[in-house]
Each structure stands twice: as structure tokens, then as C-alpha cells.
């Protein structure tokens, strides 16, 4: 097997996602669901947690890589193409934006404005259609009855990155949560997706 293998890394197709949140918010589950959504579209995907101790409320990070080729890399996502912030109270506690290129995507679960979050200047560096705030917790309460923002954040992710289809996200959600819970979460994802697409 001399020479370039079929799955050379020369292309820049790999898409890397980092999700920040707190224990109990379904951060790791979100990365897993995203990987399943990509898988359903025939892509390769690799999701993994930051491997901390699992405690409610503690900061949690999860990663997801998407590619049309086999993913061999095992390092944590250090330069994400998209950053999902499930809990805005982390904004000034951990080094949230580390490695995020301003050509990338930024999604924050909040009902506040960037200025009120102290990000007024920072977000101006991004293309406007690469950033969004998502009222994910509110929609989660509305649809699921609990402030579990992960499904809505994935709907928003599908909307702004167009890296996966909403259908795939919703199907992945239903696979993870069979029955009514899956339908409710899928509805929250749909709400986020449609809200962003219409805005």
C-alpha cells in the first residue's frame, strides 16, 4: 500500500463540533445524536465526551466529527468548526471559544442579546448567518416539559450549518428516545430549526 491511500487527509471536509454544557443537560447525548444524524445521511461520524466524572451541574464538553471518509483522528476537538453552548452561564467560566475560528459557527442557548452576554464585540467577527442565539431551554420546557436544551440546539445547528438535515436530526432523536419523548424532542428541534430559518 505505497503511495496515497484512498482516504487521504488532504481534503478539508472534516467538520468538527464542540458542545459545552453542564452535567444533566444532555451534552454527551447531543454529540451522539448528531453523529447518528450524520450516519443516517451516509457520513462517517465520531462522537465522544470529554471523559470527566459525571456529576450534575459540572461543566461538560462533548465532541463530534463529521466527514465523508473514515475518521481516524482521536484527539479532542481543539479547533471546532462549530461551537454549541448549551449553558450560557459557562461563558465566562471556562475557555469556551478556544480554537474557534471566526469563519466557524457559534450557537448559544440564551434569550439574551450578545451585548448583554458580554459578547457584543466578539460576535461581530463572525459572518452574521454563522451565529445564532437559541431559546432552547424555553422551547424545551414548552415541548418536553423540562429545560433540556440539546434537541433544540441540534435543530438550530442543522439550520445554520446545513451540515445535516433536520429530518436526520429528528430521526436520530427518535432513535435515541423511542416513543413520545422522542416526538417531543424532535418537535423542539423542529421549532428551533424553523425559527432560525424564517428569521
Amino acid at each position: 500500500m505505497i503511495g496515497r491511500p484512498a482516504h487521504s487527509r488532504s481534503g478539508a471536509d472534516i467538520f468538527q463540533v464542540r458542545i459545552h454544557g453542564r452535567g444533566g443537560q444532555g451534552v454527551v447525548t447531543a454529540a451522539e445524536i448528531l453523529s447518528v444524524a450524520a450516519f443516517l445521511e451516509g457520513d462517517h461520524a465520531q462522537a465522544f465526551p470529554s471523559f470527566g466524572s459525571e456529576r450534575m451541574g459540572a461543566p461538560v464538553i462533548a465532541f463530534c466529527r463529521l466527514d465523508d471518509k473514515e475518521i481516524r483522528l482521536r484527539e479532542p476537538v481543539m479547533s471546532p468548526d462549530a461551537l454549541i453552548v448549551q449553558d450560557p452561564t459557562l461563558l465566562h467560566q471556562v475557555d469556551l471559544f478556544s480554537g474557534l475560528d471566526t469563519r466557524g459557527y457559534l450557537l448559544i442557548n440564551t434569550t439574551r442579546r450578545y451585548r448583554d452576554l458580554g459578547l457584543g464585540d466578539y460576535v461581530t467577527k463572525f459572518p452574521p448567518h454563522h451565529i445564532c442565539t437559541v431559546a432552547a431551554s424555553e422551547w424545551a420546557v414548552e415541548f418536553i416539559g423540562k429545560p433540556l436544551p440539546n434537541a433544540a440546539m441540534l435543530g438550530a445547528f442543522a439550520a445554520i450549518t446545513r451540515r445535516v438535515k433536520l429530518d436526520s436530526v429528528q430521526e436520530a432523536i427518535r432513535q435515541k428516545f423511542p416513543g413520545e419523548l422522542g416526538d417531543k424532542n424532535a418537535a423542539a428541534a423542529g421549532k428551533a430549526y424553523n425559527t432560525i430559518r424564517t428569521n
Binding site: 453523529s35 462522537a47 471523559f51 482521536r74
Partner: peptide, 12 residues
């Protein structure tokens, strides 16, 4: 198999 890196990774 590598703990977490493989055991906890979702992949195809």
C-alpha cells in the same frame, strides 16, 4: 481497547 477513547466513542 482504549478506555473512553473507544469505549465511549460513538462511531460507525
Amino acid at each position: 481497547e482504549d478506555g473512553f477513547i473507544l469505549t465511549h466513542a460513538y462511531e460507525r
